[in-house]
């Protein structure tokens, strides 16, 4: 493991994860509630968070499963959605510099979500030295918050918010807000034609065929426009 300096170990990682934990808990809770509404049991909701651990994918998995999408179509859609994670590890290690420890990356890299990646990259950009122990602390706290928040939401149940329609509506919009925020985080001039093609193809595919066809058409059109650009 890379040499550690004070403030760069496991405990520092746990502390750095506090803002992520505070954000993950309500989003994971709303996923647990949504899973309950979709007819999933508490173990099934918890299993999705434990095994998939990708918020937007999990919300979409609920929509695809309850919408009757074929297993392979659902899996391909969810996998395609997370392809962006391929870039996180190399970007992080580039910022960490040569000689940064990778020995336990098979474990800590599981926690490289959008927010954990952003937090770790920000710490390195501010001059902190890379340590695998820090990555473990950062990732573990966020992962635990995600799983526990899901279990709490699923335990509260799909009918838990019937008495609070505004809160129910807010949690219902959480997924759209998450997608929009993620889109803003990856948006730049080069991505604009890709995004425009994806949006147009999604609308056209949905209006002409179905929601599932719209999602596939959008992803395909955006990726093809990106491939065609020099």
């Amino acid at each position: 493991m890379a040499e550690q300096q004070p403030g760069q170990g496991f405990r520092a990682g746990l502390l750095a994860a506090v803002p992520i934990v505070l954000g993950y808990l309500p989003i994971a809770f709303s996923f647990g509630v949504a899973a309950g509404k979709a007819g999933l049991s508490l173990p099934e909701a918890g299993m999705l968070s434990l095994v998939i651990y990708a918020g937007a994918s999990q919300f979409l998995a609920l929509a695809l499963v309850t919408g009757g999408a074929p297993l392979l179509v659902a899996a391909a859609t969810l996998v395609a959605m997370n392809l962006r994670h391929l870039l996180y590890g190399p970007a992080l290690m580039k910022q960490a510099g040569p000689g940064a420890g990778r020995r336990f990356a098979w474990a800590w890299a599981w926690g490289l979500t959008d927010e954990v990646f952003g937090q770790a990259l920000g710490a390195l950009a501010r001059g902190q030295r890379f340590s695998e122990a820090y990555m473990f602390g950062l990732g573990l706290a966020a992962y635990a918050a995600w799983v526990l928040g899901t279990l709490a939401g699923a335990w509260a149940g799909g009918g838990a918010l019937e008495a609070w329609p505004a809160l129910d509506a807010a949690l219902g919009f959480m997924l759209s807000a998450l997608f929009l925020a993620l889109l803003l985080s990856v948006l730049n001039r080069a991505a604009l034609p890709v995004v425009a093609a994806a949006v147009l193809a999604t609308v056209a595919g949905t209006l002409i065929w179905s929601g599932t066809a719209g999602i596939l058409a959008g992803m395909l059109a955006g990726a093809l426009v990106g491939l065609g650009r020099k």
């Binding site: 994806a198 949006v199 990726a223």
Partner: peptide
């Protein structure tokens, strides 16, 4: 391209 395309699609 795939990341922005997927996220834009899912938001839409």
């Amino acid at each position: 391209a795939t990341g922005p395309a997927a996220i834009a699609t899912l938001f839409t």
